[in-house]
């Protein structure tokens, strides 16, 4: 059994109180093994984004525990959480969240600079990552000159800047068309094959279907879990009504 990278116990986040109490995340137990790709699916408002923010230290839980890479992180100070986001976690957002005034390579090297790497090392790493996501030629372009799919690939490269143990993606294909979605899925698959641990929240069945494990979430809680790994049926033809 491989090591567990992420583990939560009774993770809860509530907003408001009394009558208007909202349980955005309600007692979630989640374990993610190293190298695993886990998709969390559910309708909008089910709490999946909040879950991701809690796990990545962007938000604090009301109750429960979070262990990341063998360390309890739900009680950390804001300062330590920032360091955690910097070194252990990489974020990919639906809206890309690239800085428009920075070029592609400057966007990608930013986390490394924030982590105090030397400008030279940060630039070298960024260039390498851009090559990996197939955008080396666009290094000096501004994000506004890129297509949606290219921007999301830049964002993925940025998320990898500090070699995080866990990449968290929030609706990474939500703003993309079909072809660009395929691009990003391929990229995730490559990361997966390289052993990167990934947690993706989405309502896109295409992403969910390519994960190792699919968790369904409703009203802040996990309601179902499907393990999708295993041999293929080899019956793609049935899908196209070629038989019978």
């Amino acid at each position: 059994m491989s090591t567990t990278i992420l583990s939560t116990r009774g993770l809860t986040k509530t907003y408001g109180d009394g009558e208007s109490l909202v349980r955005a995340v309600d007692g979630v137990d989640l374990d993610v093994a190293a190298g695993e790709t886990v998709a969390v699916m559910g309708p909008s408002g089910c709490g999946k984004s909040t879950l991701l923010h809690l796990v990545g230290g962007l938000d604090r839980p009301t109750a429960g525990e979070i262990h990341l890479a063998g360390r309890r992180v739900d009680q950390l100070t804001e300062r330590t959480l920032a360091r955690l986001r910097r070194t252990d976690v990489g974020f990919v957002f639906q809206a890309f969240h690239l800085m428009d005034e920075l070029t592609v390579v400057e966007n990608v090297e930013l986390p490394a600079l924030l982590a105090g790497r030397s400008p030279r090392a940060a630039r070298a790493r960024a260039t390498e990552l851009l090559r990996r996501v197939g955008l080396a030629a666009k290094a000096a372009a501004l994000p506004t000159a890129l297509s949606g799919g290219q921007r999301q690939r830049v964002a993925v490269a940025r998320a990898l800047s500090n070699e995080p143990v866990l990449v968290l993606a929030d609706e990474p294909t939500g703003n993309l068309d079909s072809a660009a979605t395929l691009d990003v899925l391929r990229l995730f698959e490559e990361l997966h094959e390289a052993g990167q641990t990934l947690v993706i929240v989405t309502h896109d069945e295409r992403i969910a279907a390519t994960a190792d494990r699919l968790i369904s979430m409703r009203d802040g809680a996990f309601v179902d879990e499907t393990r999708l790994t295993g041999g293929t049926s080899g019956r793609l033809g049935a899908l196209a009504e070629l038989e019978g």
Binding site: L185, T210, T226, L228, T232, L239
Partner: peptide, 16 residues
Amino acid sequence: RRELLRRLREAQRAAM
């Protein structure tokens, strides 16, 4: 649903 997801996974992997 599980069956369809499995088919989707196959088709998606083939597409990739």
